[in-house]
Simulated assay, not measured.
Amino acid sequence: MTEPSVESTIRVVIVDDHPVVRDGLRGMLGGEPDFDVVGEAADGTEALATVAHASPDVVLSDLRMPGMDGVRLIRRLATQAPRVRVVVLTTYDGDRDVVAAINAGATGYLLKDAPRDEVLRGLRAAARGESVLAPTVSARLINHVRAPGGRELGALSDREVEVLRHVARGANNREVAEELFVSEATVKTHLVRIYAKLGVSDRTAASVVAHERGLL
Rank of each mutant, 00 (worst) to 15 (best):
N172P: 12
S131I: 02
V84P: 03
T90H: 01
E162I: 07
A78M: 07
D97C: 10
A210Y: 06
E7W: 09
A171I: 13
E130K: 04
T136P: 08
H53Y: 13
D34T: 14
S55A: 15
R116E: 10
R83P: 13
H144W: 14
G70Y: 05
D57M: 12
L60I: 05
A210H: 08
E118M: 08
Q80T: 09
E162C: 11
R193M: 12
R146N: 13
A100I: 05
V208Y: 07
I74A: 01
R121E: 08
T186D: 07
G108P: 02
S5Q: 14
T107Q: 03
S5N: 12
T91G: 00
R213K: 09
H18L: 05
T186V: 04
L60T: 04
A101T: 01
A185M: 02
E212D: 15
L123F: 12
L198R: 02
E175C: 15
V98W: 03
E160K: 11
G170P: 14
S201W: 00
D62F: 03
E212Q: 13
E178K: 14
V6C: 11
G108K: 00
D36H: 15
L110Q: 02
R26G: 06
R22H: 10
V21F: 00
L77C: 03
T136Q: 09
G149M: 10
G24A: 09
R203E: 14
A134V: 06
A205P: 05
A114I: 04
H166T: 11
A171V: 11
L141M: 12
T79R: 11
G108W: 01
A47K: 05
P82C: 02
D57Y: 14
R169A: 15
V176Y: 06
D17S: 06
A101K: 02
V38Q: 12
N173P: 10
R159V: 10
A78F: 04
R159F: 14
I74E: 02
V12T: 06
G199A: 07
G24Q: 08
N143L: 14
A125R: 08
S5E: 13
V119M: 01
T50K: 13
L156Q: 12
D202C: 11
V99M: 05
K112G: 01
V20L: 09
K188W: 03
M68V: 03
A210I: 10
L89S: 00
A155Y: 13
R174M: 10
V59W: 00
A185L: 02
V200A: 04
F181T: 14
V145T: 15
R165L: 12
R128A: 12
D202Y: 06
L123W: 09
S138T: 08
R203S: 14
R83Y: 14
A106G: 01
D95V: 08
R203T: 09
T79M: 06
E162L: 13
R64I: 08
F35P: 13
R116K: 08
V161Q: 15
E40I: 11
P19V: 04
L29V: 07
T9R: 15
G122F: 02
T45I: 12
L215Q: 05
G105C: 01
I14P: 07
N172Q: 10
A47I: 07
V71H: 02
S55N: 15
V119Q: 00
E46M: 07
G150V: 13
V86W: 01
T204I: 12
S138Y: 07
P66M: 02
D62Q: 04
V200N: 06
V99C: 05
K188V: 04
V20H: 08
D117Y: 06
R121Y: 10
G105N: 01
R11I: 11
P148E: 10
V71F: 03
